[in-house]
C-alpha cells in the first residue's frame, strides 16, 4: 500500500544555512601550508601523475641519478601496496620514502605531510612526489607542489588527453615517455601533441626516453629553471 505523501502546504519551507566552502578545503589548507614550507626551505617540488605503467618510476630513476651529481634530490613515492618503487629509486643513492595508501586511489596533502616527517627540507634542492598510478583521482588533490607533470607513454594511444581532460587541465607540463618505442608502437607524435593542445592550449610538452636519455636535459632544465 502506498502511503500518500503529505500535501505540499503542510511542509514548512526549509531554512537555508549557507556554507559556501570547498569540499576539499581541509586538503587545500594543508597543501597551502606545505607550499609555504617548501618555499621557505627553498626546495623545488614537482609531482608526477600518470596511468599505471607510463614510466614514472623509470623516469624518476634516471632523473634522480643525474640530479644527484649536482643537487640534493629526494623522492616520496605513493602506491597502494609494496615498497618496490622506493627500493628501485633508492638505488640512485637519493633519499626515498614510500607512502602506502592502502586502498586509496591518490595521494593527499596529509599523506605528504606525514611522509616528510623528520626530513630536513632545507637540505634539499629538489623533491619529487610520485603519485599513485591513476589518471583520474589525483587531479582533485593539491599536494603543495610547485609544478605538476602529467606523464603519458607513446603506447597509450594518441587520444588519451581527450579521454582524460581533467588531469591535463590541472597539470603544468605534459611529459611524453618511452619515446624510444614510438615507432614500434606506431605512435603519431604530431597527433598526440595536437590532442594535448586541444585539451590545454599552450601546455608545455616534453618528449623523453628514460632508456636512451633523449629529452632528459630539457626535463632537468625544467626542474631547475626556477634557480
Amino acid at each position: 500500500m502506498r502511503v500518500p505523501s503529505p500535501p505540499e502546504a503542510q511542509v514548512a519551507p526549509a531554512r537555508i544555512v549557507e556554507v559556501r566552502r570547498s569540499l576539499l578545503k581541509a586538503n587545500d589548507l594543508r597543501a597551502r601550508e606545505l607550499r609555504q614550507r617548501f618555499t621557505a626551505a627553498g626546495v623545488r617540488v614537482v609531482s608526477l601523475v600518470s596511468s599505471p605503467g607510463a614510466g614514472k618510476t623509470a623516469l624518476l630513476e634516471v632523473m634522480l641519478t643525474r640530479l644527484r651529481r649536482t643537487h640534493a634530490a629526494a623522492a616520496l613515492v605513493g602506491d597502494l601496496a609494496t615498497d618496490n618503487d622506493a627500493v628501485r629509486l633508492a638505488r640512485s643513492g637519493a633519499p626515498v620514502r614510500q607512502i602506502n595508501t592502502g586502498n586509496l586511489c591518490h595521494l593527499e596533502a596529509r599523506m605528504v605531510e606525514e611522509g616528510l616527517a623528520g626530513w630536513d627540507l632545507g637540505a634539499l634542492d629538489v623533491l619529487f612526489l610520485e603519485n599513485v598510478g591513476n589518471l583520474v583521482c589525483p587531479s582533485a588533490y593539491d599536494l603543495g607542489e610547485a609544478e605538476r607533470w602529467v606523464l603519458l607513454s607513446v603506447t597509450e594511444g594518441e587520444d588519451k588527453p581527450l579521454k582524460y581532460p581533467t588531469i591535463f587541465n590541472t597539470a603544468d607540463v605534459a611529459v611524453i615517455t618511452k619515446l624510444d618505442l614510438a615507432a614500434a608502437a606506431g605512435c603519431d607524435l604530431a597527433r598526440l601533441r595536437t590532442n594535448i593542445a586541444k585539451v590545454r592550449p599552450g601546455m608545455a610538452i616534453i618528449e623523453v626516453s628514460a632508456r636512451t636519455g633523449a629529452g632528459l636535459e630539457r626535463l632537468l632544465q625544467c626542474v631547475l629553471r626556477w634557480r
Partner: peptide
C-alpha cells in the same frame, strides 16, 4: 568549472 563546493544546508525552519 572545477569547483566542488558545499553551497549550504536545507534545514527545518
Amino acid at each position: 568549472g572545477s569547483e566542488l563546493e558545499i553551497v549550504g544546508l536545507e534545514v527545518d525552519p
